[in-house]
Design a protein around this nucleic acid. Structure first.
Lengths: 212, 212
DNA sequence: ATTATTTTGAGATATATTTCACAAAATAGC
DNA sequence: GCTATTTTGTGAAATATATCTCAAAATAAT
């Protein structure tokens, strides 16, 4: 059983909505509620759920508590995931201070930077020099890493991560990392996202002009 | 002629690689070079190019300068895109200070926040109170906006943006914005990305266990 | 000038993803 | 208890996306 990327992304999105609904006191949802909230079709929600073996009651919809538990299992939420961040520039610093991860069972345990000025080995989440990263990953059995270093350093930093035991994570550097099987990195590139958006905005504008 | 999301995203990625190659003194590339750099198949590169009318020379590959110009046209790089950011928290602040946009023809022209403490109407890129956002968008004909406010404020802020003239942008809030046609927003949700990555890491681990 | 080699371009094929459509189950009303 | 209504679950159809294959063009070699 292999599930497509898309289904998993949506599963995480459904989960976000469900947690809010549950906090509001809701006990059950219909596929159409979720589809409205996430911006997909009800059939999509049901297909996604059925792929992961998440079942509801005909006419009764889905029991939020029930399916949240199931989702937690699927998404590996049974244990806290420890994550490190390499690069304490704008994005790295933003992420290390971001409060939203904790309640998701994701804990940023350390930051690393090549610039000694950025090092700060006191405080809540410590920032070490990058040359301590390898040992830190080894000693603490870290498996998830975030690359937020400049593009020209990204591959080298990533290689160190992998050699130390990192199995996956996120890459904010605007390059495609070279890696072997057995490692999962997702790329987040704000510039590319903005360019893409602007392209579609322009395309839409042209289309409107044609219609008017 | 309608092009899929994916092709446009890759076009922007190809462009990033090509600009670097050009800066290094390269004059031409083959589809296989680009595919290596971006992590796709050569056929994918060629199909993408042919969709956008980007032509190369059989045996000679593609002329970098040529196709960069063409890409600039496709991606609307002929004029500088002015962008505003709502929300000066971790992510908003990171983006407003990010240097990478400028050379992409993207200019962050202002930030906005509801917290008076964050307001700073001096300096390079000014930060105004959020209640000045509507007029700013109107007066400066801004079309691109970035939502970096907390999730419970996101829809309201977005609605103001749209009413003032925003046509698209990025949404970092972990909700799905409700909008009519004629507006393009792309969602970036670091939490979802991390969860998805961790899911695939776990799936991979299980698979490996089965094989060994 | 001819032949061999390389690489594009695109139709055909394969795969992935989404939507449709409707039977089956659960609930509510009478 | 029976009927009407609602909503799930899923196979089938539709759409979107990616890969394969190979002829045609361009270049290089002899």
């Amino acid at each position: 059983m292999k599930y497509g990327n898309r289904s998993i992304i949506r599963l995480s999105q459904y989960r976000n909505v469900l947690k809010r609904l549950y906090a509001l006191g809701f006990l059950k949802v219909f596929s159409s509620n979720l589809s409205d909230a996430v911006g997909v079709t009800p059939a999509q929600v049901r297909k996604d759920f059925s792929q992961f073996g998440i079942a509801g009651n005909k006419k009764g919809g889905y029991d939020i508590n029930d399916i949240l538990k199931k989702m937690d299992g699927i998404l590996g939420k049974d244990k806290v995931q420890k994550v490190i961040i390499a690069g304490m520039g704008n994005i790295g610093s933003a992420l290390i201070h971001y409060k939203g991860f904790e309640k998701e069972g994701i804990e940023i345990v350390a930051g690393f930077d090549a610039d000694p000025v950025k090092v700060k080995e006191t405080g809540n989440v410590k920032i070490y020099h990058i040359n301590k990263m390898y040992d830190f990953i080894r000693d603490n059995n870290i498996e998830v890493g975030i690359i937020a270093v400049p593009d020209n350093a990204a591959q080298a930093v990533f290689d160190i991560m992998v050699s130390a035991g990192i199995k996956g994570g996120l890459n904010f550097a605007p390059i495609t990392l070279k890696m072997d099987q057995g490692c999962i990195m997702r790329n987040i590139n704000v510039g590319v996202e903005l360019e893409t958006t602007i392209y579609f905005m322009n395309a839409l504008k042209k289309q409107d002009e044609l219609c008017s």
